[in-house]
C-alpha cells in the first residue's frame, strides 16, 4: 500500500499521545493551584512550566493568538493594581504624574501570571486534541454515541454560525449595503441578519440530522473500529488526581495549622 493511499493518520507530535482526560486534569490542577495559592513565586513557576509545555508542543503561535484577547485585561490589571492596590507603599516609577507602586505591580504580575498559565495550559488541550479525537475517546470509554454527538455538535454550531455570518456579510458588502468600515458599523451589520442567520444554521442542523439518520446513526450495531491508544494514560490520571488532592490538602493543612 502506498503512502498516498494510507488512511491511517500517524501522530507526529508527542502531545497528541497524551489522552484528552490527562490534559483536562492538567488544566484542573493549574486552575486549582491558581485559586488556592496567592504566591508570586508559585505563579511564576507555574507560568514557566506552562510556557515550556506550549513550546515543547510547538503550539506557541496559536497560543499567542489566544493571548491577544487577554492583553487588554492584563493591561487593566497592571494599571488598576499599580495605582490603586490597597497595600501600595513604595513608588517604583512615575509616568505622566501617575505613580505606580511596587507592591501593586507585583500583585498585578502574580494575577497576570495566573491568567496566562491558565490560558497556556488550556491552549495545550485545545490545540493538541481534535473534536473527532474527543468524540472517539468519549465513545471508547463507554459514553453512548448519541450523547457524544450532542456534546460534540455544540463545538460545530458556533463555527457554523460564524461561517454563515461571514457569507451573509460578504454578500452584503458585495451589494454595497453596509461598507462595515469601522467596528460600530460591523456590530450594526450583525443585528438585521440575526434572524436569517439563526434560521439558516438551524435548517443546516436539521438537514445534517436527517443525513445522519439515513446513514444509520442510530443503529445499535455501531462498533468503533478505531482504538485510540495513549502513553500511560492511567498513570497520568492517577498522578494528576494525586497532585490535585495534594494541592487541596496542603491548603487545608495550612488553614488548620493557623487556627490551631
Amino acid at each position: 500500500m502506498s503512502d498516498s493511499e494510507s488512511s491511517v493518520v500517524l501522530r507526529q507530535n508527542w502531545a497528541q499521545n497524551i489522552d484528552p482526560v490527562t490534559k483536562l486534569l492538567l488544566v484542573a490542577c493549574v486552575l486549582l493551584g491558581s485559586l488556592l495559592y496567592k504566591s508570586l513565586t508559585y505563579s511564576l513557576v507555574v507560568l514557566g512550566l506552562s510556557v515550556f509545555l506550549v513550546l515543547a508542543a510547538r503550539i506557541q503561535a496559536k497560543a499567542l493568538r489566544l493571548i491577544e484577547f487577554s492583553l487588554f485585561l492584563i493591561a487593566t490589571i497592571v494599571l488598576i493594581q499599580g495605582l490603586l492596590y490597597p497595600f501600595n507603599r513604595t513608588v517604583l516609577l512615575t509616568v505622566f504624574h501617575l505613580r505606580f507602586y511596587k507592591e501593586g505591580l507585583l500583585y498585578a504580575l502574580m494575577l497576570s501570571s495566573r491568567l496566562l498559565s491558565i490560558i497556556f495550559v488550556t491552549s495545550f488541550f485545545i490545540f493538541t486534541t481534535t473534536i473527532t479525537e474527543n468524540a472517539t475517546y468519549l465513545e471508547q470509554i463507554g459514553v453512548p454515541y448519541h450523547t457524544v454527538y450532542v456534546l460534540i455538535s455544540v463545538c460545530y454550531i458556533l463555527p457554523q454560525i460564524n461561517k454563515n455570518m461571514r457569507h451573509i456579510q460578504v454578500a452584503q458588502r458585495a451589494r454595497g449595503v453596509n461598507p462595515q468600515s469601522n467596528i460600530a458599523e460591523q456590530v450594526r451589520a450583525i443585528i438585521p441578519i440575526l434572524v436569517p442567520l439563526i434560521t439558516k444554521t438551524l435548517m443546516q442542523s436539521v438537514e445534517r440530522s436527517t443525513a445522519l439518520q439515513l446513514r444509520g446513526f442510530s443503529n445499535p450495531n455501531r462498533q468503533q473500529t478505531e482504538k485510540l491508544t495513549y502513553y500511560r494514560a492511567e498513570l497520568a490520571h492517577r498522578g494528576l488526581i494525586l497532585l490535585a488532592a495534594l494541592l487541596g490538602g496542603w491548603k487545608i493543612w495550612m488553614i488548620l495549622s493557623k487556627l490551631v
Partner: peptide, 17 residues
C-alpha cells in the same frame, strides 16, 4: 465528525458494525 475523507466514507459502515 470525521477528520478525513476516509473516516467520512466509513461512517455508515461503522454504524453497521
Amino acid at each position: 465528525m470525521a477528520e478525513t475523507v476516509a473516516t467520512e466514507m466509513a461512517f455508515s459502515l461503522v454504524n453497521l458494525g
